[in-house]
Design a binder for these strands. Sequence first.
DNA 1: CCAACGTACATGATGCGTCATCTATTTCAA
DNA 2: TTGAAATAGATGACGCATCATGTACGTTGG
Lengths: 154, 154
Amino acid sequence: MSDTRWLDDDQQRAWRSYLRMQTRLTAALNRQLQTDSGLSLADYEVLVYLTDAPDGRLRPYELQHALDWEQSRLSHHLSRMQRRGLVERQDCPEDRRGAFVVLTPAGREAITNAAPGHVEAVRDLFFDALTPEQVAALRQVATQVLARLDPASE
Amino acid sequence: MSDTRWLDDDQQRAWRSYLRMQTRLTAALNRQLQTDSGLSLADYEVLVYLTDAPDGRLRPYELQHALDWEQSRLSHHLSRMQRRGLVERQDCPEDRRGAFVVLTPAGREAITNAAPGHVEAVRDLFFDALTPEQVAALRQVATQVLARLDPASE
DNA sequence: CCAACGTACATGATGCGTCATCTATTTCAA
DNA sequence: TTGAAATAGATGACGCATCATGTACGTTGG
């Protein structure tokens, strides 16, 4: 109840463009990964962090913070990846509540095979369409919006 | 097999920032809409287009092109919205394969109630974080990436 | 010491999105 | 005109994401 301040035409157009880019770009990247490697974007990100970890092994909560995912999303996702043989779960002796997620050889192979094509696609569809200045500007935009979303991030 | 050209550090950082903004921003907007109005972002977009149509009525394929959705996504989504009483389906006499989607009074009420809060959130989380120049730059970025994704768009 | 509280993780339900596939109708060309 | 192809739409299966909740273990203050 009150006079809502609507978006002006420029803002509307910018917003719609942004939404459309987002939808299409992630769809395209997902499709590329899926058809070329049988992985989803989410799989890919999980595997990246595991690959960079010592022994390909992390506590789920570490992964969760690195990915900025909800806890239950990660848990469900790890279950599916485990079912497909990409990761394993191990008990954690130091904290009996906890666990470890470990990259399996199949998981390591999957990310190794997937990475070149995915990077290629990101470059082709995104970076090659933009100037370095635009990339820098976009990064700045993202940073400011993130600060707005989560004032406590840093 | 060959020397993949990886992303440099700036590109990596920009890419991660972008992905994180995307995830968090849509999550925040979805949550706002959901808790304040019981609608999802997808519901909202469907209702917007229906509201702007004569008699609140469109052929599904028109809606599909306007939204830039896959056909089956729309069909499933309309089924869910129909189940909740937000829209109805009607037969189309001119093309017996086809149909109409019509806004119900409940649907019209839902979008009317939801719009101010949603616009407010978009403004607050997005536009208020950015300068007009940044908004223009982002729009340009989206346009270029979209052109890259779909050379035949226009 | 132990009760209260916090943390690590799992699970079931449900909505969302894609793919593959199916049906019905229209269109178009030989 | 008729058969092939294109178009409009629905549906089932399945992976993805969130919310609510549950369980087990650690931590801490009295």
